[in-house]
Write a protein that binds this DNA or RNA. Structure first.
Lengths: 245, 245
DNA sequence: CGCGGAATTGAACCGATTCAAGTAGCGTGG
DNA sequence: CCACGCTACTTGAATCGGTTCAATTCCGCG
């Protein structure tokens, strides 16, 4: 229950928890993500009722969203920012299992048995929709094509987990860091690239902070990587070569 | 597309592909796994039609079930034995991403976009039901509570993947091997414990064959582990202590 | 019996970790 | 505005652990 991730300090927890009206229908209806979840609204009036309990919540960097073992009554849709899902190992260190990117969902396990599988932290400024399980069930009952979307989400998370196993937890430190940069860069849309700290990178790649730092430094020295204002720049082909070492 | 896992040789591929009658209804109806997938059969006659195309297939050890990148038209329910899901890394080596145990499902991605995410091999004698995506969709159309079961399966696979990340890909070789033994032993029901080869263990734990062999040998020497007739015996508490090193 | 694949064991090597020290960056308060 | 302190990051040197390469043993099977 109690999670004390080594070296990670929780900073601000700002939850601009809005009243139901503010977000209930007016916002959801025009949310670009909304359409991917609730499509083909055959009977809008029913949908509105189901959507009302959805809260829009903002978290500051390092904010705790939920803990491993928590009883989750909601799942989350990430509208902006990144969320890291952390599990602690038997030895007490913590391992980042997945990075959720905007548009992704997490806490889906709440639909199965409510037991949160990870501790979820905000990485940077984060904007989520907290969707009560009840809302989902209600939509499902009304026979909205909810299930298929959810299954696709599950598969997406599974793909992400498999990627961490195959590419970020296997091979030399050079290959892992390169693999991370390739897919991180690839997934960032819009240019602004808020990225993980060295410590978070270490937790995701199963390496130490020092090794990550050294590896990045070496990449920079050899000219395949540039770092400016907390953003990385590189040529894909060069890093791709390193990733397959 | 072409997968050539380093050092892994495909042996026999025996597919006792049965005619539709043999399995169609008579077998499915009394399959203990069947009930977990298709419950509450409101209209049995419709279900029968959907279940008919389900094939029961046997694979020998090391048999290839499908390849990474294949267009899957079916998903699989494992009735007996183990299946390993393998992905190849950028450097050409292969990594075991998940071990499916009897009762588990794999190839669920066929429901999303048909593209097989892994190469699936039989580990030992394997008995699967190959369920066409069409059958699933048909059941779903008829409003059977299929979706929830499938979501639970997805979550189960996700839990498994996360476990590989957190416990089998992190920490010392001693801790990883101990963690594997703990959960492997725990999951084996019925006593007979067909287990993975050293090579497969290495692929799952992200170690080399030699390291796995050495670690197991050390466990045996120090008295925490016994190996007889390809089965491991140990006291949970002792290995649990090692797992948290 | 002898073959071949899997597993074991040894020794040298290499790369990641560990421990320790130093630097850079940033917000706070004097 | 600078000084301070905190944290994140960097860098170095020594150590440790896993890999690599090579040789040997074990075991099932024709």
């Amino acid at each position: 229950m109690e999670v004390q991730p080594k070296g990670i300090v929780l900073k601000a927890i700002r939850t601009h928890c809005t009243d139901t009206e503010w977000l209930g229908r007016s916002r959801c209806a025009r949310c670009d993500i909304h359409t991917t979840v609730v499509q083909h609204l055959a009977e809008p009036e029913k949908t509105d009722a189901a959507l009302k309990p959805i809260e829009n919540v903002l978290f500051g960097n390092h904010a705790l969203i939920y803990r491993e073992g928590d009883a989750l009554q909601s799942l989350y849709m990430l509208r902006r920012g990144f969320v890291k899902l952390v599990q602690h190992t038997l030895s007490g260190t913590s391992r980042i299992v997945r990075i959720i990117k905007s548009g992704g969902m997490f806490g889906l396990e709440s639909l199965i048995d409510e037991r949160g599988r990870h501790t979820a932290f905000a990485v940077g400024e984060v904007d989520v929709c907290r969707i009560p399980v009840k809302s989902i069930r209600r939509l499902q009952q009304d026979n909205y094509p909810m299930a298929e979307h959810l299954m696709a989400r599950w598969q997406g998370n599974l793909d992400s987990a498999d990627h961490v196993i195959t590419h970020l937890s296997t091979g030399s430190s050079r290959a892992r860091v390169a693999s991370f940069l390739l897919q991180a860069r690839y997934d960032v849309s819009g240019g602004e690239c808020e990225y993980l700290s060295r410590e978070e990178l270490a937790g995701l790649l199963g390496l130490t902070i020092e090794t990550v730092s050294r590896t990045l430094a070496e990449f920079k020295r050899s000219g395949v990587l540039r770092e400016e204002h907390r953003a990385f720049y590189f040529e894909r082909s060069q890093l791709a070569k390193i990733a397959q070492e």
